[in-house]
């Protein structure tokens, strides 16, 4: 495995993957705590369309990714508090956005002479072994920024997530915090799309966080555990993806994350999850 690190592509994957996994683990924990995990589902649809729209007009893929995910995260934040929109309308809108993504994919693959035919597949399922040195370092910088911002916000955000009414009464800017958090989720989703792809980023956000919440009751310990689990699963996935020919790294990462989450169901705990979390905070 040490020999693998001498390959620049693997080194870049480990660098970017570690940072992205840590950011996904931290944001995922708050998403699970705030019962917003399906924001991840919505973002995965828009990430695909944003990335391919940018490619179709000839821009860098990441511009489209970040614009789409952060924009939609903000939109969801503004809509979310105002009204309870129905699932048919939201589901239809996101299905259509995904359909639009396919349109951009075809536009890109048929009209751009320099295009590669697998652009759609690599946006959907990630291409972490294909990251260049500069892309990896940008990913590290953005993911580190997300981590730092989340750690700074962690205490008030935790308070606002566990008991919104009391937090608001104590003068915590609950609404502003919610919006800031969604922007961080958007940035994290855009990063994760480059690693595991837009379809699988939901798993990277949900699995480590769900496992951490089952393993410990203390919110701060769960937060740290979620990030550690995500990084561990990322490393395992990268190693398996490198060692076993034919297995794509994004599948290996998802498989590791799912196995860890499944393993937590075998461990019996004396009391149940969320009620205890609320009690300790």
């Amino acid at each position: 495995m040490i020999a693998a690190l001498s390959h620049p592509f693997f080194l870049h994957a480990v660098l970017a993957g570690t940072a992205i996994a840590a950011a996904a683990g931290l944001t995922g924990y708050f998403l699970v705590l705030r019962a917003q995990i399906f924001t991840g589902d919505a973002l995965s649809h828009t990430a695909f369309t944003g990335a391919l729209a940018a490619l179709a007009v000839g821009w860098d893929l990441r511009i489209g990714l970040f614009a789409a995910t952060v924009g939609v995260a903000l939109l969801l934040g503004f809509l979310g508090s105002r009204s309870k929109a129905d699932d048919v309308a939201i589901g239809s809108a996101f299905a259509w956005i995904l359909g639009l993504g396919v349109f951009f994919l075809t536009l890109y693959t048929t009209h751009r002479s320099t295009s590669d035919g697998n652009a759609g597949v690599s946006v959907l399922f990630g291409s972490i072994f294909g990251l260049s040195a500069s892309a990896a370092w940008i990913a590290v910088a953005v993911a580190a920024g997300v981590c730092v911002a989340l750690l700074v916000l962690a205490r008030p955000l935790l308070f606002a997530s566990l008991d919104e009414a009391v937090a608001a009464a104590r003068g915590v800017p609950v609404r502003l915090l919610g919006l800031a958090f969604l922007v961080l989720v958007g940035a994290c989703a855009a990063e994760a799309t480059q690693a595991v792809g837009s379809l699988l980023l939901l798993g990277l956000l949900a699995a480590p966080a769900g496992a951490a919440q089952r393993l410990t009751d203390s919110p701060f310990r769960a937060l740290a555990l979620s990030a550690l689990l995500a990084v561990g699963e990322m490393w395992t996935g990268l190693a398996v993806g490198y060692a076993v020919p034919g297995v794509p790294p994004s599948f290996a990462i998802m498989a590791a994350a799912t196995l860890v989450f499944a393993a937590t169901f075998l461990i019996r705990r004396p009391d149940t999850g969320t009620a205890a979390v609320t009690a300790t905070a």
Partner: peptide
């Protein structure tokens, strides 16, 4: 979280 993981 479980459903999201299973889907992914």
């Amino acid at each position: 979280a479980l459903i999201g993981t299973v889907q992914a």
